[in-house]
Design a protein around this nucleic acid. Structure first.
Length: 414
RNA sequence: GCGGGUGUAGCUCAGGGGGAGAGCGAAGGGUUGUGGUCCCUUAGGUCGCGGGUUCAAAUCCCGUCACUCGCCCCA
């Protein structure tokens, strides 16, 4: 039992995982910039009330899951449990929405929620997200969904986009009323754990995973029955756009999202990896900006769980290209000069500064899968040569110490 | 916040009241400057922690902590 252990729900990421994170981050930045998003970074903690006002006073994220603390002047802060509120705050505060910085933003970073950890769910987790602010046209919905799907597609992660619309406020309120009534009259058809939500948050019951509810809720009224013609047309248009763009989507009448600020379009990218099968999700939030003190500007966005994508990513283990083995003290000093020359010529090489037993060094190099090994011992020093060995087939040759010979022996001379 | 499973060597795990085990890995040797295969040898453990039952506990009981899977919630 180690003396110190990491806090519950946090992770120590090894080289392979950080490499996956890096691949995801750089691809996301490239794609989102390609689509006209500006990348921003904002604080990891904010005033607590920012999240209370936006994420929702009734949501479990705010009521139970925030890491809250006071600073030395007793101001109330919280580690950010999600990205959208901080981003909107920053956009309003910095007048980003009026400048030429663009009105679409992407972000990537750590978030914090106090929850019981399980597969794909951590207390410190990473999300990437994109917010498209300023347009209520359905094309911007399609663009946001396209970005999420495009990213996953480029990472070769199988997924389907679940799609629904919560409609405008009046439609939603009428639907909730009708749903509540149906639930009250049909309590026996849903799991009793879900019944407590009838008053509090009936929409949540729609995406319950309790078998009884999944079965019973199918008979409940559907939200599309309450859509106005405008909403229906808009949704139809959205599906047409997605089809034209080859997005693999699926209408899901039971998709609702957990955050209070969503309106109209909601979507989610799901895979099939256990309980936490959603890679990412988002939706439109046309009222949030004005609620946070900005103008009445519509917006849509999504967030995506980086830990979850990373665990679905198939990438080969990273192997060093070349190991350099100086044999003994005398050779090390000269070796450093050669190695630094290789580095400055963009040749990846990992020196073993602490291994002068050739057999052991080769064994180590072999076990981590190095493609080449360069040996520099007293023999080589006398001859003014390097011994380059191909670890795949065992071929080795002695070459003079100059960059062109090294490059060609390592197969880099094209 | 609720429920299930698991904690024994660096790793994966077997054992289930009386000797602390295997495989892999590590270290050394066969091969003093040549890895992968093979052979030999060695090291490494308060059996998560605390308490209880017992002549005797890794083993049974209680508690606790950690990990893990699920519910809730959500990315």
């Amino acid at each position: 039992m180690p003396k110190y252990q990491k806090p519950k729900g946090t992770r120590d990421l090894d080289e392979n995982t950080t490499f996956k994170f890096e691949v995801i981050r750089s691809l996301f930045l490239a794609i989102s910039r390609f689509l006209g998003y500006s990348h921003v970074e904002i604080p990891i903690f904010e005033k607590t009330n920012l999240f209370e006002r936006s994420t929702g006073e009734s949501s479990e994220i705010v009521t139970k899951q925030m890491y809250k603390f006071q600073d030395k002047k007793n101001r109330e802060f919280a580690l950010r449990p999600e990205g959208t509120p901080g981003l909107i705050r920053a956009a309003i505060e910095n007048n980003w929405l009026n400048s030429h910085n663009g009105d679409k933003f992407s972000y990537f970073g750590p978030f914090f929620r106090y929850e019981r950890p399980q597969k794909g769910r951590y207390r410190q987790f990473f999300q990437l997200g994109a917010e498209s602010i300023g347009s209520n046209n359905v094309e911007s919905d399609a663009e946001s969904i396209y970005l999420l799907s495009f990213l996953l597609k480029e990472l070769e992660i199988k997924h389907v986009i679940k799609l629904n619309s919560l409609g405008e406020q009046e439609e939603r309120l009428r639907y909730i009323e009708s749903l509540q009534q149906w639930l009250t009259n049909n309590k026996t058809k849903i799991a009793k754990e879900d019944c407590i939500n009838i008053e509090k948050n009936p929409l949540r019951i729609l995406d319950s995973k309790k078998p009884a509810t999944v079965k019973g809720i199918k008979e409940a009224p559907k939200i599309h029955e309450f859509w106005t013609k405008e909403t229906s047309d808009r949704f139809k248009k959205l599906t047409n756009l997605l089809e034209a763009a080859n997005v693999n989507y699926q209408v899901d009448e039971f998709l609702v999202r957990g955050l209070d600020y969503y309106t109209s379009t909601v979507f989610e990218a799901s895979g099939h990896d256990g309980a936490q099968d959603a890679y990412g999700g988002g939706g439109r939030y046309n009222n949030l900006i004005s609620e946070l003190g900005g103008k009445n500007i519509p917006a849509i966005g999504f967030a995506c769980g980086v830990d979850r994508i990373a665990s679905a990513l198939k990438i080969d283990q990273i192997k060093p290209f070349c190991i350099f083995i100086p044999l003994g003290e005398k050779c090390r000093e000269k070796a450093f000069g050669i190695i630094s020359k290789m580095w400055s010529n963009s040749v990846s090489v990992k020196p073993y500064w602490n291994e002068s037993n050739l057999g052991k060094a080769l064994k180590r190099a072999n076990s981590i899968g190095s493609k080449y090994v360069i040996v520099f011992g007293e023999k080589e020093m006398q001859n003014n040569t390097l011994l380059i060995k191909n670890m795949k087939n065992g071929d080795q040759k002695e070459i003079p110490i100059n960059m062109s010979s090294i490059m060609s022996a390592l197969g880099l001379d094209e």
